[in-house]
Amino acid sequence: MEIVLSLGIGLFAASGVWLLLRPRTFQVVLGLSLLTYAVNLFIFAMGRLTIGAPPVLEAGADAARIADPVPQALVLTALVISFALTALFLVVLLAARGITGSDHVDGREPGA
């Protein structure tokens, strides 16, 4: 399971970085989204990987056999914030496209 998760995070992050360095604003947005997925999975993994373990302590439960609830709370917060900010970035992207007439990150076509 560990190898699958780390490969997944790595793939997301690598694709995200590649897209982030592309010249078109929409590619940048997609890159940011992919990177966000990678980071969210990473936060989740920081609570250690468990299968079928409840996230809440019961009386007399073995502390080693529960999932850590804190990273789950963190990832929820991070998810909401990055989702909202990606939406905001999309609005700015559209404004930039409308005003400059180009979807290049510099606001003008190369060589123009």
Partner: peptide, 27 residues
């Protein structure tokens, strides 16, 4: 708007660094 686009992109990436750092520290 042009300056804002760069500013937002850079700071969104900085926030991702922030999250990775925080979760490593928690881990």
């Amino acid at each position: 708007i042009r300056a804002g686009l760069t500013y937002i992109a850079v700071n969104l990436i900085a926030s991702l660094f922030f999250l990775v750092g925080v979760s490593l520290i928690y881990g």
